[in-house]
Simulated scan of single mutants.
Amino acid sequence: MKTIRIIQGDITELAVDAIVNAANSSLLGGGGVDGAIHRKGGAEILKECQQIRAQQGGCAVGQAVITHAGLLPAKYVIHTVGPIWRNGMYDENQFLANAYLNSLKLAEAHQLHRIAFPNISTGVYGFPKARAVKIALTTVIDFLKTSTQVEEVIFVCFDQENYQLYQQESLSHAKQQSDLRLL
Rank of each mutant, 00 (worst) to 15 (best):
I78Y: 08
F127Q: 01
D142R: 07
T67I: 09
K105Y: 15
I37R: 02
N98H: 05
L182F: 11
G123I: 07
N93A: 14
L183K: 04
I11P: 11
N24P: 08
A97I: 07
L144P: 01
I4N: 03
H173S: 02
V81C: 05
S170C: 12
A136C: 08
N21G: 00
A97W: 03
I115V: 15
Q8I: 13
I7K: 00
V156R: 00
S172Y: 11
E152M: 11
Q50W: 00
I154P: 00
S170P: 08
D142S: 10
L165N: 06
Q94I: 06
R86N: 13
T67H: 12
Q63G: 01
A43S: 12
I66C: 02
P128C: 10
K40A: 14
H173W: 15
D91C: 08
D10W: 10
M89G: 08
E13P: 05
V133E: 02
A74N: 02
G62A: 05
Q111A: 14
I154M: 00
K129W: 01
S121E: 07
Y125K: 05
V156C: 13
A99S: 15
S121T: 02
I7L: 04
G58E: 10
C157N: 15
E13K: 15
D34I: 10
G123S: 10
K75M: 13
D159Q: 08
P73W: 11
M89V: 11
L71M: 13
I115R: 03
T3H: 06
K40P: 05
T122F: 00
C59S: 09
R86D: 10
I37T: 07
S172K: 15
A109P: 00
T148S: 15
G41V: 09
D10Q: 09
V133A: 08
A60R: 15
M1Q: 08
M1S: 05
G62E: 02
Q63D: 15
Q111T: 11
G126T: 12
L171Q: 14
C157D: 12
D34S: 08
T80N: 02
Q55T: 14
Q168F: 04
I135N: 01
N98Q: 14
D10H: 14
G70S: 12
Y100R: 06
P128S: 05
N87Q: 13
L27T: 06
A64K: 01
I154K: 00
L72I: 10
D91G: 05
A132D: 04
L106T: 12
S170T: 14
D91H: 14
I6G: 02
Q160W: 11
I6W: 07
G57K: 08
G88S: 07
Q177D: 04
L27H: 04
F127H: 08
D179C: 10
T12W: 02
S178V: 05
V20E: 04
A15D: 15
L101W: 09
K175I: 09
T67Y: 07
I11L: 11
T146G: 06
S178A: 10
V33K: 00
C59F: 04
